[in-house]
């Protein structure tokens, strides 16, 4: 992970934000690094009965029960067998902790806020609310995830008592 852009975190102004980028298939995604708690290798999860396919189950994160979501399945991509590069990115969503299964972690990038373009309108059938925007890094196109939307909306809602 080399980056000329990273002049040291202390000097980064508010005009730029740091993102952790990862791969899903041939696509590159980014998450605001301040939301990332840790990165873990994939280990055994306990499946949750009668849950959607992308909810892989729960795992024990130092005594806390954390749900694990497969982002490929969440985004409707083909499932891929987990291998030694498969990692879980543990993120904070509000007060909750959730784990996201991604193909591989790629980089940590400083991205200028001004350079982030809003997600294009892909038609009514495709929900782009999960995207905070799209950033360009040289010839790479990075989809920046609005993580609260990704895991915060449909399936992590509390059931009204």
């Amino acid at each position: 992970m080399s980056h000329q852009h990273l002049d040291g975190r202390g000097e980064s102004t508010e005009a730029t934000s740091q993102y952790l980028t990862f791969a899903l298939g041939h696509e590159e995604y980014g998450i605001d690094i301040l939301r990332v708690q840790e990165i873990k290798g994939f280990s055994a999860v306990t499946p949750i009965p009668n849950s959607p396919a992308y909810v892989k189950g729960v795992m024990n994160l130092r005594g806390t029960v954390v749900p694990i979501f497969d982002l490929r399945l969440k985004f409707g991509m083909d499932p891929q067998a987990y291998d030694r590069f498969t990692v879980i990115v543990v993120v904070n969503v509000g007060a909750r902790i959730v784990g996201l299964v991604v193909d591989a972690v790629l980089d940590v990038l400083d991205i200028e806020n001004a350079s982030i373009e809003p997600a294009p309108d892909l038609g009514a059938s495709i929900d782009t609310s999960v995207l905070q925007g799209i950033a360009r890094n040289q010839d790479r196109l990075i989809s920046l995830l609005a993580i609260d939307q990704v895991v915060g909306t449909d399936h992590i809602t509390t059931i009204a008592a």
Binding site: I48, T64, V65, V98, H155, T158
Partner: peptide, 12 residues
């Protein structure tokens, strides 16, 4: 351990 803390209620 609570499941609801990070996820939601699971039936039964």
């Amino acid at each position: 351990k609570s499941i609801e803390r990070n996820y939601r209620k699971i039936e039964a």
